[in-house]
């Protein structure tokens, strides 16, 4: 059923019409929260809070925009507020990720895949918050420029500019990391060669 039909039902007091909306957008909300907060438990809590907020403010929803961008906007703002309140950097659950990857591939490939994934994650996390959000909305959530403008409340020029700069920073970070790991390999190879 269309979002707008469901929203009208919700506004008429039929709360069960909200359930399909949660089912449809919980992954989007959770994913944005996880990428912005880097903590699974917190992302799950935020997902709940965001939907409750949306429910409470449903009468303010403007049907000119899609429900998807509306709820994404609530999520981004909520997460930025949380990050501002408790200035902190959270590390990823590497163990968990290793398990997920090794289920898919053989052990050696898994280690490589995991290292690569960690590297990408580390590089993205090192970006300033707004650039990280841009990269995630565009390249992970596959949202359009127009949608990102609505979600972040920024004009197109700023959105494009930020995304381009985010990509530049990301490329430089990744090259820095691969450069380091190459150096390490070289050093260990020399060490083996000289028998030390």
């Amino acid at each position: 059923m269309e979002d707008l039909v469901l929203i009208r039902k919700c506004l008429a007091g039929r709360s069960e019409a909200f359930e399909p909306l949660i089912a449809k957008y919980k992954n989007l909300v959770y994913s944005i929260a996880l990428n912005t907060l880097s903590d699974k438990n917190e992302a799950a809590d935020v997902t709940q809070e965001v939907f409750l907020k949306a429910w409470a403010n449903l009468s303010k929803y403007n049907p000119e925009f899609s429900f998807k961008t509306w709820i994404a906007r609530i999520t981004v703002n909520h997460c930025i507020n949380i990050n501002q309140k408790n200035k902190r950097v959270v590390a990823w659950d590497d163990e968990e990720m290793g398990r997920v990857v090794s289920e898919e591939k053989g052990p050696e490939e898994a280690v490589l895949a995991c290292e690569k994934r960690l590297m990408v994650r580390k590089a993205i996390e090192s970006l300033p918050e707004m650039y990280r959000i841009m990269i995630n909305l565009y390249h992970q959530e596959n949202l359009s420029y127009e949608e990102i403008c609505t979600i972040t409340g920024n004009p197109m020029t700023i959105v494009k500019n930020r995304l381009y700069r985010a990509r530049k920073m990301l490329a430089e970070k990744l090259r820095e990391y691969t450069g380091k790991s190459l150096e390490k390999e070289e050093i260990s190879w020399i060490a083996v060669k000289h028998g030390t």
Binding site: S15, E16, F18, E19, I22, A23, K26, N27, V29, Y30, S31, L34, A44, T47, Q48, F51, L52, K116, R117, V120, R121, A123, I124, I135, N136, H139, Q140, R167, L170, A171, L174, R175, T178
Partner: peptide
């Protein structure tokens, strides 16, 4: 570096925990 990072990001996507819907509806 960017090409492989963007491919990697697609794989990094994680679904929300399954219990969330019920919890939210209850509240």
């Amino acid at each position: 570096a960017l090409s492989s990072a963007f491919v990697e990001m697609e794989h990094m996507k994680e679904p929300a925990p399954p219990y969330l819907e019920l919890k939210i509806m209850k509240r």
